[in-house]
Nucleic acid binder design. Structure first.
Length: 369
DNA sequence: AAGGCGTGGCG
DNA sequence: TCGCCAAGCCT
């Protein structure tokens, strides 16, 4: 298959020359990344999961710390979920950590503790989709499976001057990625095309003068690199007001709860609270939420801090108040678990980012009067 | 099959 | 301050 057609079917690109140009470029311009120094499928798997929707610089410290604490599939499978989430704290998209944990246990029971080497078995593991399966199998075992991450989508969209958003052309992009993939050097080719997207074919101000595919690239030829890939228009994010309670008891402890095991921030600990309803004061909201979620009565005291935070699909303002426990026995009505914790022990639990700011504010303010 | 799902860096 | 974007997957 010597040539590829672009989206309109009107042009042809020479596959052998594209492959060799990219592989030659990669020989001198590859990034030195820690997961490229190993063939251990576990380490490569961990890196690929961490790298989903997350940049290399963010992943690096998490990657090293993770492998220090959980160096093998067996270690991960035997760890507590709290330990796993604590190692993941701050990386976001926490389902990734839950899937890693679950998949490790699955590998222990179904694959004798050995990471599977065939595509169907790998893609069947939770958290591993088509692209991550291809990335792991090509990186660890040099198997010829295509990948399609954000880098590859952007590179191919420009190479072929794709006129619609990549989201609407997934099938076409997969075909291009598979047809371009070099069957003799799948590991190097997949790593190379990702490096090309990360260092040359960047989202803004691509460095076309240094690109091995400059003379093949339709977007560059037509002066469209700034306009491709085309982006979907998105609605503005809703903004919610949340009342949050830092509830103290007479022993100087604070009440925290663990969120339900799935969904937003699933399995993480937090300070209890909830959405402020229309025509409701923050204080009323907090008393109501604490009654509904924990079954206890509290007195709302001094204001601690307001925290603005943006999630992937909405924004929040957390209005945080010190509260005092008054009556009732705390029960996990709207959550997974609850605990009274000394302020010094809060660090032991996995909290989402916005809640770590609350912990810092508690440390500054100290206990209420 | 769209929408849910975090966080940090950038212009 | 704000919106956009980054090595996607699951339901």
């Amino acid at each position: 298959m010597p040539h590829l057609k672009d989206a309109e079917g009107g042009y042809a690109l020479g596959v052998p020359s594209l492959r060799s140009a990219l592989l030659d470029w990669y020989q001198h311009h590859s990034r030195d990344l820690p997961w490229r120094h190993t063939r251990d499928p576990y380490a490569i798997w961990v890196s690929e999961i961490m790298l989903q929707q997350t940049q290399v610089a963010t992943v690096l410290p998490y990657y090293h710390r993770w492998l220090d604490h959980l160096p093998t599939i067996q270690a991960l499978a035997g760890a507590e979920l709290d330990t796993v989430l604590k190692l993941w704290q701050g990386l976001g998209y926490y389902a990734r950590a839950r899937y890693l944990h679950c998949a490790a246990q699955q590998i222990m029971s179904e694959h004798q503790g050995q990471f599977p080497q065939n595509y169907a078995a790998v893609a069947a593991l939770p958290g591993i989709g088509r692209s991550t399966a291809g990335a792991i199998l090509s990186a660890a075992f040099d198997q010829a499976h295509p990948i399609l991450d954000g880098n590859v989508k952007r590179v191919l969209s420009r190479l072929f001057a794709l006129s619609i958003p990549p989201k609407q052309a997934e099938t076409q992009l997969w075909v291009w990625s598979a047809q371009l993939l070099c069957p003799q050097q799948p590991r190097n080719f997949n790593q190379a095309i990702m490096d090309l997207g990360a260092t040359i074919c960047t989202p803004r101000q691509p460095l076309c003068h240094a690109c091995p595919w400059q003379n093949h690239c339709r977007a560059h030829r037509y002066g469209l690199t700034q306009d491709i890939p085309r982006k979907m228009t998105s609605a503005p994010l809703p903004h919610k007001q949340i009342g949050v309670a830092v509830i103290w008891n007479n022993a100087g402890q604070i009440l925290i709860d663990r969120r339900p095991p799935t969904g937003l921030l699933g399995g993480l600990w937090e300070f209890p609270g909830g959405k402020i309803e229309p025509r409701e004061t923050v204080q009323e909201c907090i008393r109501r939420e604490i009654r509904e979620e924990l079954g206890i009565e509290v007195r709302v005291g001094e204001h601690l801090i307001d925290i603005d935070h943006a999630y992937s699909h909405f924004k929040v303002t957390l209005q945080v108040y010190y509260c005092h426990y008054e009556s009732g026995t705390p029960q996990p009505l709207g959550c997974d678990a609850i605990r009274w914790v000394a302020p010094a022990d809060l660090d032991q639990f996995p909290f989402p980012k916005a809640n770590t700011l609350i912990i810092a504010a508690i440390r500054e303010r100290g206990a209420p009067n």
